[in-house]
Simulated assay, not measured.
Amino acid sequence: MIIFDCDGVLVDSEILSCETDARLMRTAGHQITTEDIIHRFIGRPKHAIWAELAEERGQPWPSDLLQQADEILLERLRTELKPVRGITDALQKLDLPRAVASSSGVTKLKLSLEVCGLSDFFGPHIYSAEQVARGKPAPDVFLLAASQLGADPGDCLVIEDSAAGVTAARRAGMQALGFTGGRHTWPTHAARLRDAGAIDVITHMELLPGRLADWKRAA
């Protein structure tokens, strides 16, 4: 079974999300850049990111700021979001059971897949961290996806772009393949994924079918 993260793996949304959050945080007087959020928090649930940064700044965010960020991001997704290059062809070639397991909320997750024309590749097997007790780097959302398809965690391969996601996969007893083809990628991105436990890292989705064939032969 193959489990895909969504943001930065299926859809090229990480840069949009991190830009939006950083801009709204700066309006509240917190000096942070898009790159800061990418490097520190990529792959983690949004509410956890905002909560940690509120603690760092020593005061809560304005009551409506997170809602504003969500609304702005959803509109940007509707008008700017693109699928990760090569993912549609890769999914068309995939002959294994598959699911999505994401740190995104349900609304953002479903909208992202619909905008990019990817929903039908996964049917009902689209899972959000909102559906489990703990988000990544905890393994909960990956274990949920595996259980819903009746798969043993040891028979699952996770495709991830974040160290938090790779860590979650490893904690679930799954292998992880890193991906660094999104617009948010930075020079040491692949090394961070390998350090977290990824068995390999690919930079283009055109390489995915071959890597999956290798994984199946080795299983």
Rank of each mutant, 00 (worst) to 15 (best):
T27Q: 14
T27Y: 03
T27H: 06
G29V: 06
H30M: 15
H30E: 08
Q31M: 12
Q31L: 09
I32T: 08
T33P: 03
T33W: 02
T33K: 00
T33V: 02
T34A: 01
T34E: 11
D36G: 08
D36W: 05
D36Q: 06
I37Q: 01
I38Y: 01
F41R: 04
I42R: 13
I42L: 12
I42W: 00
R44I: 09
R44C: 02
R44G: 01
H47Y: 08
W50G: 00
W50M: 10
L53S: 03
L53M: 14
A54R: 02
E55S: 13
R57M: 13
R57S: 10
P62E: 12
P62Y: 11
L65W: 01
Q67I: 11
Q67A: 15
L74T: 05
R76V: 04
R76W: 10
L77T: 10
L81W: 09
K82S: 05
P83I: 12
V84S: 04
G86P: 04
G86K: 11
I87V: 15
T88G: 07
D89N: 11
D89K: 08
A90F: 08
A90Q: 06
L91F: 00
L94I: 04
L94M: 15
L94T: 07
D95P: 02
L96I: 09
L96C: 08
R98K: 14
A99L: 04
V100I: 05
A101Y: 03
S103L: 07
S104P: 01
S104G: 12
G105T: 12
K108V: 12
K108E: 14
K110M: 06
E114M: 05
